[in-house]
Design a binder for these strands. Structure first.
Lengths: 330, 330
DNA sequence: CTGAAAGCGCTTACAG
DNA sequence: CTGAAAGCGCTTACAG
């Protein structure tokens, strides 16, 4: 690669001058500026971004830490982040942790050694409080989808309302025995979704039935298993609210494999509105999360924090969700 | 962050000695080695990876360039790449090009300025021959899924055989009027899949019907549209081979929306065996590609090239595919 | 075996 | 406005 020295030589100036005409922050005589620009062009010079950053410890790189790209919800968010990062001259490193805290720590440590400028994390949950210290150290960071208090910038969705609306809708359709297939209760968003579900039942004076509720379900396979178990218990169930689309996909399959019809026998409600939802059979009624936008917002925020002279106060941004009615609820 | 100087000071040695005990390539007196190690521990020192690389122009970073993470086929491959990169101490930067060559060039240029050590690209097609020059320059690079001649290391799947087996299977099930919903013919893998389809028909003495073939279809929406058009023409069709799962997903939906049944009225064959395939309705019969493994293989190969003293000769690795029979073909 | 020096490719006070 | 020097955090010939 062509270096600044070669450009300097060709233009007959010092490296400092080349650097200055490039940065534009310090005035350079128009005539020499032209000479430098010409040399840059002739040599097709592109400054080494890493070397540029060495001095002030920046790398123009962002770390994105998620549980697993293979989870349906992430690709859209990743796209939002990546598109936004690109716009601001940043590059993004993708890290999968499988929810393992040691892997997460490994990545954080590793990326810091690469002078990473900031992190977007979708892995926050109890036990990950050390992230708050990182933040206190002044390290730029935003939480996406997951949250852990108010001290870190966060982009989430109104999970309570989403679940509440979803459940209320199911009730309005005459459903009375609505099972819940939920995720880990120590992840805040699943607790909120659980609360939304409870609240809607409560308002309709429908008693909560413990035997219809299953937590700690993760992904399609698990969703399939959870639904199957529920079905085999021969409980009275006319609907199931799966608090994520993957779980709904699994539940759908289990219900059909059990010989029942959706939504005639059992209605299914999802949460996410992932790309696949309209193509499922029946097309999935679900709660839409603006994943791409969440990615954009999170990334915009992170860049703002990184580039701010004075760090802004953390804020939790709650984006709206929307019930998308298709055919899986009667 | 703690620097090498601070460690040197604490251990009462020079920075050189710290560097040497860390690299282990040059002998250090056991006693001083211990002192250094202790200082490193006490200060919790982690060398700056970027600074380490500046000297020899390495960054321990890989660039992964794909059309779009939102395409169902990529997440698994990304996981394979990322897991493998991690194992070798590399980090991976994800770039989406939407098949736009200028975006691709932008990324390549940008990443080179970051001393990227090599690329994995899933975007090769006619018009991207400039990549071959990059390779000739000695730049480490491997193609994944897509190929462009024999001069670049490539990891692909036996696309011809996959399509041939798929079509042959459909024929063996008694299907005679098998439509083809295919991708861009200038992408080699789609040409191969087309060839496999043709060959199977030929062997069964079934004439190729141009009106049953549609190329240039990309993704679910497009797949839906293509199938709809086919259906509206009132052609005799008893099966459709969609050369990717997303297209199959769209076709499935279109057939059902048209009031027909799969597979009773029309059989559907996919290609990919993406995670969603078993959960579709009916569960999709398709050709399985080992995406995760392909990612692993591509990354292993890239690391090998990067770290080799003498660059090995390029080789095209063709992994086997497998027909996965489920319920969408009669 | 070990230290001082030079260098990787930049940027930025410091002089002038 | 411009150049020479110092420095970012490392590594690696070069001496000893």
């Amino acid at each position: 690669m062509v270096t600044i020295k070669e450009v300097a030589k060709r233009a007959g100036v010092s490296a400092s001058t080349v650097s200055r005409t490039l940065s534009g922050k310090i005035p350079v005589n128009e005539e020499t500026r032209q000479k430098v620009l010409q040399a840059i062009n002739e040599l097709n010079y592109h400054p080494n971004i890493l070397a540029q950053g060495l001095k002030d410890g920046k790398s123009k790189t962002l770390g994105l830490i998620i549980p697993n790209v293979r989870n349906l919800v992430f690709p859209a968010a990743i796209r939002g982040i990546e598109d936004t990062a690109k716009k601001h001259g940043y590059t993004v490193v993708l890290c999968n942790t499988d929810e393992d805290i040691d892997t997460e720590k490994f990545y954080i440590d590793n990326l810091r050694r690469r002078l990473i400028d900031g992190f977007i994390l979708s892995t926050a949950r109890p036990g990950h409080e050390y992230l708050l210290d990182l933040k206190k150290e002044g390290f730029p960071m935003v939480f996406l989808n997951r949250q852990l208090g108010e001290d870190v910038d966060t982009v989430v969705v109104d999970n309570f309302k989403g679940a509440y609306d979803a459940t209320k809708y199911m009730i309005s359709r005459g459903l009375k025995n609505i099972a819940l297939i939920n995720g880990c209760m120590d992840i805040y968003l699943y607790r909120q979704r659980f609360d939304g579900y409870k609240k809607a039942l409560e308002e309709a004076s429908i008693p909560l039935k413990e035997e219809l509720i299953v937590h700690e379900v993760y992904g399609w396979e698990d969703g399939y298993q959870a639904m199957k178990n529920l079905l085999e218990k021969n409980l009275k169930i006319d609907g199931v609210f799966a608090t994520s689309d993957p779980k709904a996909v699994g539940a759908l399959r289990a219900i059909k494999d059990f010989g029942l019809k959706v939504p005639e026998d059992i209605s299914v409600m999802g949460f996410d509105n992932s790309d696949i939802a309209p193509f499922l059979e029946p097309p999935l009624t679900t709660v839409s999360q603006p994943f791409y936008d969440m990615g954009v917002k999170a990334c915009e925020r992170l860049v703002k924090i990184i580039e701010a002279k004075r760090k802004p106060k953390a804020k939790v941004e709650v984006l709206p969700v929307e019930l998308v009615v298709r055919k899986s609820v009667i």
